[in-house]
Design a protein around this nucleic acid. Structure first.
Lengths: 260, 260
DNA sequence: CCCAATTTGTTCGTATGTATC
DNA sequence: AGATACATACGAACAAATTGG
């Protein structure tokens, strides 16, 4: 009795495959029961019985949930399939897929960055303890060059983005924190993809570091509007810097090809 | 010879399951080859041969990709597994999962809305043609009550959010459009989940509609800063309105429970 | 309209890997 | 170390859907 397609069932369920229907049913089930991360779902054998389907079908359904980051499975006794809280890295990765074909521009990303980062700064002013401020200082130190030479440009750029990620992590607004970290991630991907890592103008770079230091001061002092303004200028500066790099890359590209 | 765990393979690949490794390999493969949406992947049989794995394993890998919205499969001749562009609804759904356990507040959502929506308005001023402006007018009309009575409150609220979704769709910045539509979606989920749909104060509601109309005027006139300001005030107004509803719900809740 | 080919979809039985006790 | 409970994986067969003759 393999498929055993009850006609009434296939009519009501639309044209979803069986694993998809099972996955949806389990999702619904978890929400209705209010199961929290860590809760163990019935074993594959029990699910087979409950949904009257073969092991392979159940397993495919579980893979569907697993890819969404909603469950994790472990082998062995006491093992099984467990409700899992979607991790931020996974959420970022899933969302990155959406923009894979969108080819975002530097301007697109900065339109959000220059709007949201100042808002974040303002909302954090006067709300950070010394330990948090110290972590920000440490992040700044990491992106500063050990000597004055242009050492590992890509690593420094990544460290600079990490400062913003650390700052975002201090927000009590999970939505704001997520979006800002996602923007930093996308910015990293775009710059890497376009090879925008030629040695930076040292002067502009120093200016960027100065902004970050000033920001920490204003955050400590609790000046919300000053912090907003500093980060606003910092974003304008960073945007200009990236556009300049972009222009260099385009120029080099045109030169190599001899277009004209 | 079931699992046939080649030791060299399992050592280099870490502790990912085989379907996970296959899914990653396929993903990498697609990126390297630059395959675009619509491109057909090798058939299950070919993939079985290429990865030297059983049908079930390959199918689980494909389910992993399918859940991410990266792939779609069709049966029959000419069928197969096809590279697929992640749809926005799916991206929204996947991201919603991440915030399922986060319990966002109205304030969280509005901190982003009141920052991003004015930016959107400013960037659209003077850039919309008459057809687009007409679509915005139509969206406003939908959320206006047929008579003066409080008819279907939930539907009206949904229509109001749709205005913002339509507006977001007119941005040429896919990132900005996505985030704003996602915020509207989350706002809808939160309000539904908390039952924040009791009859609205008609005066405040009318004010909201007036803001939307004024916005369209300013967009047509091309006044970027005026448009920004209108949407800023609109967001403040909407936020106040929702907080008032929230307060009502809490009050009713306390009364029902008799807490004191 | 039916038949054949192609490809995914599903089932069943069996064996292996893994973690707990 | 052995027993147990669970996911993981294989292989062979069959079902369903779609396309074309």
């Amino acid at each position: 009795m393999p498929p055993a397609t009850t006609r009434s069932e296939s009519a009501s369920a639309g044209r979803l495959s069986r694993p998809q229907r099972v996955a949806e049913a389990i999702k619904q089930w978890v929400m209705e029961e209010g199961w929290q991360p860590g809760h163990r779902l019935p074993s594959e054998t029990e699910l087979m019985a409950r949904f009257a389907m073969a092991k392979g079908t159940i397993r495919e359904a579980i893979r569907l949930l697993e890819a969404q980051g909603l469950v994790r499975s472990r082998t062995g006794p006491g093992g099984g399939v467990f409700v899992h809280r979607v991790s931020e890295p996974r959420a970022v990765a899933l969302l990155s897929n959406y923009f894979y074909f969108a080819d975002l521009s530097i301007d697109d990303i900065y339109q959000l960055r220059r709007t949201l980062e100042p808002e974040l700064a303002a909302s954090l002013a006067g709300r950070l303890d010394e330990e948090q401020l110290a972590r920000l200082q440490a992040a700044i130190a990491e992106s500063a060059p050990p000597a004055a030479g242009a050492h590992d440009e890509a690593a420094r750029h990544a460290a600079s983005l990490r400062f913003h990620a650390v700052l975002a992590g201090m927000s009590d607004n999970p939505l704001l924190g997520f979006v800002i970290r996602f923007l930093a991630e996308m910015l990293g991907e775009v710059t890497v993809a376009r090879g925008l890592h030629s040695p930076t103008d040292p002067e502009l770079w120093e200016t960027g570091l100065a902004y970050q230091s000033r920001l920490v001061s204003e955050l400590r002092a609790g000046n919300a509007e000053a912090a907003r303004q500093v980060l606003h200028e910092h974003m304008e500066n960073a945007h200009r810097l990236m556009k300049r790099q972009e222009a260099k890359v385009i120029k080099r590209f045109l030169h190599d090809r001899g277009t004209g």
